Amino acid sequence: MPIHTPPLVIIESPYAGDVEANLAYARAALLDSLNRGEYPFASHLLYTQVLTDADADQRSHGIAAGLAWGAHACLTAAESRPSSAVAGSPRWRRTSTS
């Protein structure tokens, strides 16, 4: 019997700017994806815990690491909310990466 693996999804949403609101939004998107039965990854939620976004070299390193993981994803979920949207109500443009 084949093993069903849920789709791997890269979550792409803003980090800079209103960081707290953007983090809340990214967390909501991560939960939304999990509730869809997907296996999401949001590099900006992970790498910003150990890298400094204001440091250009560290930011580039984090982006490169996120893109490397993205190469293995089936879908990319990119933010498509208007700037006035409320965090916690994700709106996504989903595109196949394969």
Rank of each mutant, 00 (worst) to 15 (best):
residue 1 M to W: 09
residue 1 M to Y: 12
residue 1 M to H: 15
residue 2 P to V: 14
residue 2 P to S: 14
residue 2 P to D: 13
residue 3 I to Y: 13
residue 3 I to V: 14
residue 4 H to F: 15
residue 6 P to V: 00
residue 7 P to R: 03
residue 8 L to W: 10
residue 9 V to T: 00
residue 10 I to P: 03
residue 10 I to L: 11
residue 10 I to Y: 06
residue 11 I to R: 02
residue 11 I to C: 04
residue 11 I to E: 02
residue 11 I to V: 07
residue 12 E to T: 04
residue 13 S to N: 07
residue 13 S to W: 02
residue 13 S to K: 02
residue 14 P to H: 01
residue 14 P to S: 01
residue 15 Y to T: 02
residue 15 Y to L: 02
residue 15 Y to M: 00
residue 17 G to Q: 03
residue 18 D to P: 05
residue 19 V to L: 05
residue 21 A to G: 05
residue 21 A to N: 00
residue 22 N to K: 00
residue 22 N to T: 03
residue 22 N to G: 05
residue 22 N to M: 00
residue 23 L to T: 11
residue 24 A to I: 07
residue 26 A to P: 02
residue 26 A to Y: 00
residue 26 A to E: 00
residue 26 A to S: 06
residue 27 R to L: 12
residue 28 A to T: 05
residue 29 A to F: 09
residue 29 A to E: 12
residue 30 L to G: 05
residue 30 L to T: 09
residue 31 L to I: 13
residue 32 D to L: 06
residue 34 L to G: 05
residue 34 L to P: 07
residue 34 L to I: 13
residue 35 N to V: 09
residue 35 N to R: 15
residue 35 N to I: 07
residue 37 G to Y: 04
residue 37 G to S: 00
residue 39 Y to W: 10
residue 40 P to K: 01
residue 40 P to S: 00
residue 41 F to R: 05
residue 42 A to F: 01
residue 42 A to T: 00
residue 42 A to G: 03
residue 42 A to R: 02
residue 45 L to M: 01
residue 45 L to G: 06
residue 45 L to Y: 03
residue 46 L to M: 10
residue 46 L to W: 07
residue 46 L to Y: 09
residue 47 Y to R: 01
residue 48 T to S: 08
residue 50 V to R: 11
residue 50 V to P: 06
residue 51 L to V: 01
residue 51 L to Y: 02
residue 54 A to I: 07
residue 56 A to D: 12
residue 56 A to F: 08
residue 57 D to K: 11
residue 57 D to H: 07
residue 58 Q to A: 06
residue 58 Q to F: 02
residue 58 Q to D: 05
residue 58 Q to N: 06
residue 58 Q to K: 06
residue 59 R to L: 01
residue 60 S to D: 15
residue 61 H to P: 01
residue 63 I to L: 13
residue 65 A to N: 04
residue 66 G to D: 01
residue 67 L to S: 10
residue 67 L to V: 09
residue 67 L to I: 09
residue 67 L to P: 05
residue 70 G to P: 02
residue 71 A to C: 09
residue 72 H to Y: 12
residue 73 A to W: 01
residue 74 C to I: 10
residue 75 L to D: 10
residue 78 A to C: 13
residue 79 E to T: 09
residue 79 E to N: 14
residue 80 S to N: 15
residue 81 R to H: 08
residue 82 P to C: 15
residue 84 S to V: 15
residue 84 S to P: 07
residue 85 A to I: 04
residue 88 G to S: 07
residue 88 G to M: 04
residue 88 G to C: 04
residue 89 S to V: 13
residue 89 S to F: 14
residue 90 P to N: 03
residue 90 P to T: 03
residue 90 P to F: 06
residue 91 R to L: 14
residue 91 R to H: 12
residue 92 W to G: 00
residue 92 W to H: 04
residue 93 R to T: 12
residue 96 S to G: 10
residue 97 T to S: 08
residue 97 T to Q: 10
residue 98 S to F: 09
residue 98 S to V: 11
residue 98 S to A: 12
